[in-house]
C-alpha cells in the first residue's frame, strides 16, 4: 500500500498554489488533510504527478462569525469545526454533523474544504452546505469567483471547480433555530447509508422557510426544494411529514451497493428524514 511517486510542493500562499496548478495542469492535485486522497493513492486509484500541500497557507485557515456572515477557511479541520464555540452558537448544525463524520483521528486531519471539493457523494459536508445555502469561494489563474453550494456538484467526483482552481473558503448566514443532521451508518466511522440535513424557521405556530438536503442517495448531494416546500405553512404534523418524505423520495436516485439494495436505501432515507424533521421542529 505505497502511493505512487510524485513531486511534492508546499506553497505558502494561495497565489503560489494556483500558479503550480496552472503550470502543471491536470498532473497536479491539491492535498488538504489527505484522508480521502491518500487512501485513493495507496489503492493506486488516483495518480498524481505534482502534489500541492495546502497546510501552510494561512489565508485558508480560521473561522470568523462577524456581521451576519460565517466564514470557514477551506483548511479548517472537522476537529476545529467541532471545538469552535463561535460556530456552535452561530451554526450548531455544523458541530452536530461533523461529530458524525468518521472517527477522531480522521477528524483531526480531514478538512471542510477537502470534504466538499472531493465530490464524493458519501461525504457529509456537501449536503449540509446545500441546506445552509452556502457559497464556495474559488481562486484560479483568472482571479476569484463564487459558486453556490447548490450549483457546485455535477456528478460523482465532478464539481464546478476547474482543475487549476482552489477552494479557499466557504461562507453562509447563521441558520434557522430548528435544525437537525441525522445519519444512518452501519457502524461508527462509516459513510452514510442515508443522511438528512433539515433547517426549519418557525413562523408563529407553523413552519416558515424549510430546507432539506440528503446525502449518499444519488451521485451528488440532493437539495430537495419540494421537500422543504411541503413543510412550509404546516405544523410538521404526520400529513406534512409524509408529503415531505414523498417529495424527497421523488428527488433521490440511490443505487445498490454494499450498504444495501435500492428499496432498503429508500426506506432508510424516509426514516432518517422523518427523524430529522421531528428533531428540527422540536428545536424551532
Amino acid at each position: 500500500m505505497i502511493p505512487p511517486a510524485f513531486e511534492y510542493h508546499r506553497p505558502q500562499d494561495v497565489a503560489s498554489a494556483v500558479q503550480i496548478l496552472a503550470e502543471q495542469g491536470d498532473e497536479a492535485r491539491c492535498l488538504a488533510g489527505g484522508h480521502s486522497l491518500i487512501p485513493m493513492m495507496k489503492l493506486r486509484m488516483a495518480a498524481v504527478e505534482h502534489l500541492v500541500d495546502l497546510q501552510d497557507i494561512a489565508e485558508m485557515q480560521g473561522i470568523t462569525t462577524e456581521s451576519g456572515t460565517i466564514r470557514i477557511g477551506a483548511m479548517v479541520t472537522q476537529h476545529e469545526l467541532i471545538t469552535s464555540d463561535a460556530l456552535a452558537s452561530a451554526a450548531p448544525i455544523i458541530r452536530e454533523a461533523a461529530l458524525q463524520i468518521a472517527d477522531p483521528q480522521v477528524r483531526y486531519m480531514g478538512t471542510v474544504g477537502g470534504n466538499v471539493a472531493n465530490g464524493d457523494p458519501g461525504n457529509d459536508m456537501p449536503g449540509l452546505m446545500q441546506a445552509l445555502d452556502a457559497t464556495f469561494h474559488l481562486h484560479g489563474p483568472d482571479g476569484a469567483r463564487d459558486v453556490a453550494a447548490r450549483e457546485f456538484f455535477e456528478a460523482a467526483y465532478m464539481t464546478a471547480r476547474e482543475d487549476e482552481e482552489i477552494l479557499t473558503a466557504i461562507t453562509f448566514a447563521p441558520h434557522a433555530k430548528g435544525y437537525a443532521y441525522e445519519k444512518q451508518k452501519r457502524k461508527i466511522g462509516d459513510y452514510a447509508t442515508a443522511a438528512a440535513a433539515v433547517l426549519i424557521e418557525k413562523d408563529g405556530m407553523v413552519a416558515g422557510n424549510a430546507t432539506v438536503a440528503m446525502t449518499n442517495l444519488s451521485d451528488t448531494p440532493v437539495f430537495s426544494e419540494a421537500a422543504g416546500a411541503a413543510l412550509t405553512g404546516t405544523s410538521c404534523d404526520a400529513h406534512a411529514m409524509k408529503a415531505a418524505i414523498d417529495a424527497m423520495l421523488n428527488d433521490i436516485d440511490p443505487t445498490e451497493d454494499n450498504r444495501g439494495p435500492v428499496e432498503f436505501k429508500r426506506h432508510v432515507a424516509g426514516v432518517i428524514l422523518s427523524r430529522a424533521i421531528s428533531r428540527a421542529w422540536d428545536r424551532a
Binding site: 500500500m1 492535498l31 500541500d53 476537529h79 483531526y108
Partner: peptide
C-alpha cells in the same frame, strides 16, 4: 490495516492524534 481504519498506527502529530499510515512523510 494500513487502510485508515484500525488505529494501531496512531501517533501524536502537532497535538493531534493521527493514523500514521495515512500521513505522507512530506506532510
Amino acid at each position: 490495516c494500513e487502510t485508515s481504519h484500525c488505529g494501531a498506527c496512531t501517533v501524536e502529530m502537532n497535538g493531534k492524534s493521527v493514523k500514521s499510515c495515512t500521513v505522507l512523510a512530506a506532510q
